[in-house]
Amino acid sequence: MSTTPSDPADAPARRGRPRSAGVERAILDAVVRLLEDGVPLGEVSMERIARTAGVGKAAIYRRWPGKEELLVDLMRSAEPPEPELPGTSVRDDLVALLEALRRRGVAKRSSAVLHTVSAQLRAYPRLWDAYHRAVIQPHRRATLDVLRRGVETGELRPDADLDLLGDLFVGPLMLRTLVTPDAALDEDLPARVVDTVLAGAANPAAPGSP
C-alpha cells in the first residue's frame, strides 16, 4: 500500500488496513514546521496543518479527535519514553523515575518545538489538560505506586505523607526545568534528590537504615 500523504486508501487504525505511517509522520512534521516558523499555538489550526502536510483534514481526524491530542502526541514523540523500573528497591525505582524527568527537561531545552509548546501550554487550558492527563498524571501515579510499595515493604516510614513525598521528589526537577531553566540538570541530580529526601523519610527500623 502506498504511504504517500495523498493516499486515499489510508484507513483507520482500529479497522481494516493499518494506518499509513508516512501520512502520520507528514502530519507531525507539518506541525513542527509551523511551530519552527513561529506560528503561535492558537493559529495552528487543523486546516493549516492539513494544508502544510498535503493531506485532507479527514486524514488528521482519523488519527486524532482534535488539535489538543495531536499536539500532546507530538510532544510525547519528542520526549524521552517513560522508564522501565528496575524493581530492585524503592530508591532505584525513584531514581529511574526522576531520571526520566531530568531527560525530559534536557529535551525541552534542546528542542525548539518542545520549548515553544511548553512555554505556551498554560495559555491553552484544553491543551494543558490533555497534556496533564496524558503525561503528568501517569508519572505521578507511578511515583505514588512506588512510594506505597515502599511503605508496604518497610523501606519507608508507615506514617509517611506520600502525596507530600511525591512533591518533594519531583519538585527540584520541575523547578530546574520550568522556573530556573538555566539551572544545572546534572546526571547525578536524580540520585542526589532521592537520597536527600529518603534520608528523612526512610523507616529507621528498615535493614540498613542509619
Rank of each mutant, 00 (worst) to 15 (best):
K57W: 03
I60W: 07
T88W: 13
E68K: 04
S89W: 00
Y61P: 04
D93K: 08
E84C: 00
P80I: 11
P86K: 10
S89R: 07
P86S: 10
R62I: 01
P80Y: 12
S89V: 05
P81L: 08
D93M: 06
L94M: 15
R63M: 03
A78V: 01
W64C: 01
K67P: 04
V90Q: 03
W64I: 00
R91Y: 14
G54I: 02
V72G: 07
D73R: 14
E68Y: 00
T88H: 14
S89Q: 08
G54W: 02
R76Y: 01
R62A: 11
W64D: 03
L74V: 05
R91H: 14
K67C: 02
S89D: 10
P65Y: 04
G66L: 00
G56I: 00
P65N: 06
D92G: 09
L94W: 02
P86I: 12
A59Y: 04
L97W: 03
G54C: 07
D93V: 07
L70Q: 04
V72Y: 09
I60P: 10
V95K: 12
K67Y: 05
Y61G: 01
R76H: 05
L71N: 09
A96C: 03
E68F: 00
K57S: 13
A78D: 08
K57G: 10
P81D: 12
Y61E: 06
L71G: 08
E79L: 12
T88F: 12
L71D: 06
P81G: 11
S89C: 10
T88A: 15
D92A: 15
V90M: 08
T88C: 13
Y61H: 11
A96N: 05
G56K: 00
L97S: 06
W64Q: 07
E84T: 11
P86R: 11
V55R: 10
L71I: 09
E68H: 09
I60E: 01
L94C: 14
A58N: 15
M75D: 13
G87Q: 09
I60H: 02
R91S: 13
